[in-house]
Write a protein that binds this DNA or RNA. Structure first.
Length: 207
DNA sequence: TGCCAGGCCCTCTTTAGGGCCTT
């Protein structure tokens, strides 16, 4: 895919954004032509407490966040880095709500859609043992990008997965011009109907 | 008072329930 896509990943202090639950780290992997061509990463201090279970999961401690730059400054920089670039994430419904919440605190609003590598892999890689980002990375033989559950490493793994999914579409359905809009359309087609949909699309392009 | 996600997918479904996935 020649088009640039910004693949983002948040580490957070919990599941639902709000007063007590905020982003603690953001990673952005800018992918183009199947390669990561640019990166953004920063811890951010939003003044929230990270529970021990999440400290252990991510390796991001409360002590690390004390010296991190403030969340509003990091998010402003991240928003400038992404600009109008189309977005993607693994389980995008999760990252989208934190992206929207953190931007809203700055008086900013998202204008582009999110493609979701979880929804796409459920449709295009049904034979995978499960659809966790780490499992898919190992199963597809994609490069490990660093410590799992850190924002940039996970963003790069999701970027690699996105390129792998694109390759699957090209090989199995001879679709050459895959863009972000097609991915967003594809993830809305139900899993059961995605293959007939792609064959129909392929036939239209061949004729 | 106490508790607190939510969207997607599958099936022993659709007047529902449980598992997956993210931190």
């Amino acid at each position: 895919m020649r088009q640039r896509i910004a693949v983002i990943d948040f580490e957070t202090s919990g599941i639902t954004p709000g007063r007590d639950c905020r982003a603690t780290e953001i990673g952005v992997a800018m992918v183009e032509d199947g390669r990561v061509v640019d990166r953004f990463q920063s811890l951010m201090n939003a003044g929230v407490w990270v529970p021990p279970m999440i400290e252990q999961l991510t390796g991001i401690s409360n002590a690390m966040l004390k010296s991190a730059p403030p969340a509003h400054r990091v998010m402003r920089d991240a928003a400038a880095f992404v600009g109008e670039t189309p977005l993607a994430a693994h389980n995008a419904s999760f990252d989208r709500k934190f992206w929207d919440y953190e931007l809203a605190r700055l008086g900013l609003a998202r204008r582009q859609d999110f493609a979701c590598t979880l929804l796409l892999s459920r449709r295009l890689l049904p034979q995978a043992p499960d659809h966790k980002l780490g499992t898919l990375t190992r199963w597809a033989g994609l490069p490990a990008a660093g410590r799992a559950h850190r924002a940039l490493a996970d963003a790069e793994m999701a970027a690699n997965l996105l390129s792998h999914l694109e390759g699957t579409l090209q090989r199995q359905f001879q679709l050459a011009d895959i863009d972000h809009a097609l991915l967003c359309k594809l993830q809305k087609v139900t899993a059961a109907k995605v293959k007939p949909y792609l064959r129909e699309l392929q036939a239209k392009l061949v004729v």
